[in-house]
Amino acid sequence: MTKLKINNRIYDLALKGHETLLEVLRDILGLTGTKTACDEAECGACTVLINGKAILSCITLAMDVENDDITTIEGISSGDDLHPIQQAFLDKGAVQCGFCAPGFILSTKALLDENPRPDLDEIKKSLDGHLCRCGGYLKIFDAIEDAAKKLRNE
């Protein structure tokens, strides 16, 4: 059995070895907040956090992250309370079709956990692995600045 720790819960899974983390999350565990889009490491929709760092689950073997801390979009809110980054995305209208939002939000979490006061260039650089096909980047940047302020209690 392979033990995966996802959103602070341990899952014992009978994996064969060739499953990607994306496939395990979506097709085996039903955690469909993580999206499949390009499936070739270009778009960022499948981003999850491994030990707090943003990685692409479409090119990660699930067995390679056994014993690591895996965080998906389902794991960052507390019950019905959205995470401040999720709330900021809603407040600032940074979610259009919403397909890319989970990935953007998780990369933002990784950024703000490491650097609570990023400037615009640092925000852009940290999101360089994400594509938003609705083109809503400006509102996304606004939302991140807003979330950073809220997380700093300003």
Partner: peptide
């Protein structure tokens, strides 16, 4: 090199 996620991997 590449993007943040790729640099992490």
């Amino acid at each position: 090199i590449a993007t943040t996620q790729i640099r992490n991997m």
